[in-house]
Design a protein around this nucleic acid. Structure first.
Length: 617
DNA sequence: AGCACGCCGACT
DNA sequence: GTCGGCGTGCTC
């Protein structure tokens, strides 16, 4: 076989390639797919990635490859196949996909001559491609099954990737795995120095570790002989990347498993409806382990309460708290709003304190005496005199956050030790009688539990304009239940919600049956696919105009069966000074939506306006 | 993305 | 006259 003369190269930019480059005789290393090369692209020197070779090119005047950055490819053939599939699905270029796969240090021009040996020890193992869904309320019963399967793969010479939602799961996960796999298990740490990160990456590539644990991006761990991917709590929102490419680590894991021909195990206490349906359709092995079930759930119908007149603590809740305190038991009060108030405005002219960059109401943090933006964390001091009318000095705070709740509770239960635990709190108040908390409580994933747990703002979870609201509410109840020993109280104006009823009976089948029925009726995922186009820029009018014309062009010859929704303000319409609009497309497959969208986007480019693709938002 | 080219209006 | 805004097209 003669050496190829032409290399097909892609670049980490939003341009499709590949581009042909000449392999001159000055290149002393063999050029192979998966290698990083230095090339001149559009008059600039940058890093390119070889995705193939050829003996000739249709282009006459080729630029030469300037250098080959390392002997052994940084991507294997399977990696390339997987990244190609990933890029096509998420609507980014092949090159951008490769840069998502590689650690940041390898995306830059750094030549690795000083030498990290990327020896690709290819031992092709044949692994079970079985897919398993474990639905485990307790989070403990799953571990013997996880260990058993991982053990089987490792004993067979394979390696395992374990995905966890965030740092709070790393401890229990790595503890359980290191006990069995000892030094051959490694935790990916994003806070490593560039050098350490690179050497860890190379070690994984060389097969030093057989079990790799990490968050979202660990789905790209360059392991050899991948035999199994384990996903913990697949419904957690942090599996979705909020920057482009907007990938979802669980869908990405399934693609990788398909390319590698390996198994997948999803273990969670509230699996996403999407995974539940996929497990049914593709006949995964399914294991449902509902909890021991000593926890009772009491629903308090708040339709009978006037929150203005009575306390936000309903009478049944007050009684339950009193009873718990009398028995020297502890209590969690959950409300997912930090700060003291959610709106501060002038009583005279109605002027309201808003974040100048994000245009949302600022929350007042009593503990720090500042106004804070919940999106960009921009802090401001509370003005002495209303900047609206320059006369009134009384800015009134309304809307209840956990800090306000803390003072309410102190009034009702003066003898209790009451502590607040939110994003600002460093140390968990282990010995408190009453812990008043936001979703920050879920960072506290130890064995700590409370006798009584109450949710005060359940309806706020349900009222989000989010088709996953029911799923999220169900998950919230399940997760809070895991921290409860005896009783839960849910204050709500929708006591008949199926999320509550099914969580109360611990009836997984019933929840997913109703959730999926709702999704099917409204033609929502997993029965349809969504793609969200984001249009953003500093000039609000220009952003709106581009959104409108883009919508019209998309609408113009939309394929049959595709729905396109009018541009609307993003959930967070102004972020970091940029105005944001979105256009939602619904279709029978992501591929069909993207093939309609991509050519149109190519021709609607506008200065100072950025259009992004978010598949499965 | 980033850059060159080319086309218009409004300044010395 | 020319400086500079911005739409258009291209990158092997």
């Amino acid at each position: 076989m003669t050496n190829p003369k032409v290399a097909k190269v892609v670049i980490g930019l939003p341009v499709e390639g590949p581009f042909d480059y000449a392999i001159d005789s000055s290149i002393d290393r063999p050029v192979k797919a998966g290698q990083r090369v230095r090339v001149l692209f559009n008059r600039r020197v940058c890093v390119g990635y070889v995705v193939g070779t050829a003996s000739s090119s249709a282009f006459e005047k080729l630029n030469p490859i300037l250098a080959v950055l390392e002997c052994e490819p940084v991507l294997t053939e399977n990696d390339l196949k997987f990244v190609k599939m990933f890029s096509d699905y998420y609507g980014c270029s092949f090159g951008e996909g490769i840069e998502t796969f590689l650690p940041p240090a390898l995306r830059r021009k750094k030549s690795l001559e000083e030498g990290i040996p990327f020896k690709n020890t290819v031992r092709s193992g044949i692994f079970d491609t079985k897919k398993i869904l474990i639905c485990d309320l307790t989070r403990h019963k799953r571990w013997p099954f996880i260990i058993e399967h991982a053990r089987g793969v490792v004993d067979n010479g394979g390696s395992v990737i374990v995905l966890v939602p965030d740092l709070s799961y790393i401890k229990e996960t790595s503890a359980a795995l290191k006990e069995v796999f000892c030094e051959s298990a490694v935790v990916l740490d994003k806070k490593l120095t560039t050098k350490k990160e690179l050497s860890q990456w190379a070690q994984i590539r060389q097969g030093v570790y057989s079990v790799v644990v990490g968050t979202r991006s660990a789905v790209f761990a360059p392991v050899t002989n991948l035999g199994l991917i384990i996903v913990i709590e697949d419904d957690d929102a942090s599996y979705k990347q909020e920057q482009t490419p907007h990938y979802h680590a669980v869908s990405t894991a399934l693609m990788r498993a398909q390319v590698e021909g390996c198994g997948v195990m999803v273990a969670g206490s509230s699996p996403s409806a999407e995974i539940w349906e996929q497990a049914r359709k593709d006949q995964w092995d399914k294991m449902v382990m509902a909890g021991e079930g000593h926890v009772t759930m009491q629903v308090v119908d708040m339709n009978n309460y006037n929150p203005g007149k009575t306390s936000i603590f309903s009478f049944p809740l007050q009684n339950a708290i009193k009873a718990a305190l009398d028995k020297k038991e502890n209590v969690i009060i959950y409300m997912n709003r930090r700060g003291f108030s959610t709106r501060t405005s002038c009583q005279k002219c109605g002027w309201t304190m808003k974040c100048p960059r994000c245009n949302v109401n600022l929350s007042y943090l009593y503990s720090k005496n500042v106004m804070v933006c919940r999106h960009c964390s921009n802090k401001q001091t509370l003005p002495e005199i209303c900047p609206g009318c320059h006369t009134s000095s009384y800015l009134k705070s309304t809307g209840r956050g956990v800090e306000k709740l803390e003072s309410d509770a102190a009034r009702l239960f003066p003898y209790a030790r009451i502590h607040r635990y939110d994003r600002e709190t460093d140390v968990f108040p282990q010995g408190a009688d009453i812990v008043i908390t936001t979703q920050a409580i879920f960072r506290q994933r130890g064995n700590w539990t409370a006798s009584l747990a109450a949710i005060l703002d359940f309806d706020d979870q349900m009222h989000h304009i989010d088709f996953r609201a029911g799923q999220k509410a169900f998950a919230l109840l399940i997760h809070l239940r895991q921290m409860t020993r005896d009783k839960m109280i849910i204050q709500t104006r929708m006591p008949d919600s199926y999320s509550i009823k099914t969580a109360k009976d611990m009836n997984y089948d019933s929840f997913y049956c109703q959730e999926l029925k709702f999704r099917k009726e409204l033609k929502l995922p997993p029965y349809r696919n969504l793609v969200e186009l984001g249009v953003r820029g500093l000039n609000e009018k220009a952003v709106l105009e581009v959104s409108q014309t883009l919508f019209e062009v998309l609408e113009n010859d939309a394929p049959k069966g595709m729905e396109i929704f009018e541009p609307h303000a993003h959930v967070n319409p102004k972020l970091r000074d940029q105005y944001r609009f979105t256009i939602l497309l619904k279709g029978r497959s992501v591929e069909s939506i993207l093939s309609h969208v991509k050519p149109i986007l190519k021709s609607t480019r506008k200065r100072n306006i950025i259009i992004t693709i978010n598949v499965d938002p």
